[in-house]
């Protein structure tokens, strides 16, 4: 039976400011969903909320995997249930080697009941697997010895997220602008990488502004977010249309949310640029 990630009428606030205002979304293992929307519409907020960022408070609604509610679970427990986020801004952990970090992560995800201090997966098996995965993604094995994201270029960081995805093989993967800020070669590598990894065992939510990632990973569903709501859902052609024509038409079709978006921008004050595309 394929698993289901079910988001129902989700309301989320950050520092008491409501950001998401009733988001519902069903993602099944094996499906690919695209989530698009202007900057500031709440896409990253949804991603962070799903993995349990403590700053993002669920005020109502629910997130469930196969009927298990996630609301009370911490990020570690959610990860062990098979949830993964490729971060828009991957975090640097100075002094922690990629290989050490990944060995811990892989051990925990594959043995969800593991307690800290208990044994790790055997070094030899792990090394072999890591090497294979890195080769597949065209990564220099030297990266395994570097400190996690320290001094990495933008492209290297994003590739590191994909490597983690490859090693952890989650049931549900959220990719938050994994293709942003990369040159076209890097976008191709990341896109191809994801295509190889995603399969019938993985439900994928791709947050993106670009087409390339979606060309390699054609979504069955495209969702458009505006002012904290999913205002439209279509198929791959909707993504194509948004990419070519921007969000003007969407705003016209949803004047209420467009007005709210305007309100928010005003409240944020000058100097904050929101709503590219």
């Amino acid at each position: 039976m394929s698993s289901l990630l079910k988001i129902t009428d989700l309301h989320v606030s950050v520092e008491d400011k409501p950001i998401l205002k009733g988001v519902s979304l069903d993602i099944r293992q094996g499906e690919t969903h695209a989530l698009m929307g202007p900057n500031g519409s709440g896409k990253s907020t949804l991603a962070y909320t799903l993995v349990g960022h403590p700053k993002y408070e669920v005020t109502s609604g629910s997130i469930e995997i196969d009927g298990t509610p996630l609301n009370e679970l911490d990020p570690c427990e959610r990860a062990r249930l098979g949830l993964f986020l490729a971060f828009q801004y991957p975090v640097t952990i100075p002094g922690v080697k990629v290989a050490d970090f990944l060995r811990h992560a892989v051990t925990n995800i594959r043995n969800p009941v593991r307690k800290e201090g208990e044994g790790l997966i055997p070094m030899r098996d792990f090394r072999k697997e890591l090497k294979e995965r890195m080769e597949q993604l065209g990564m220099d094995i030297e990266f395994a010895r570097r400190y996690l994201n320290e001094g990495f270029s933008g492209g290297e960081k994003k590739r590191m997220e994909i490597l983690q995805l490859a090693m952890l093989q989650p049931r549900f993967a959220i990719l938050d602008e994994t293709d942003s800020g990369l040159d076209s070669d890097a976008v191709r590598v990341v896109s191809e990488g994801l295509r190889k990894l995603a399969g019938p065992q993985m439900g994928v939510l791709i947050i993106t502004h670009h087409e390339r990632l979606l060309e390699y990973n054609i979504p069955q569903f495209t969702h458009v977010m505006l002012a904290g709501k999913i205002v439209e859902t279509g198929d791959a052609s909707l993504a194509h249309e948004l990419h070519n024509q921007g969000y003007a038409a969407v705003r016209q079709r949803h004047p209420h949310e467009a007005a709210e978006e305007q309100e928010r921008q005003k409240a944020a004050g000058p100097g904050v640029v929101v709503g590219a595309h």
């Binding site: 349990g52 960022h53 952990i93 307690k115």
Partner: peptide
């Protein structure tokens, strides 16, 4: 958050950050 979202418990994540801090 980053480490915990990769399946590390809070204790394990903190220990890892501390270990990294003294690694040099």
């Amino acid at each position: 958050l980053y480490l915990m979202s990769r399946g590390m418990s809070e204790t394990e994540a903190s220990a890892m950050i501390v270990t990294g801090f003294i690694e040099p």
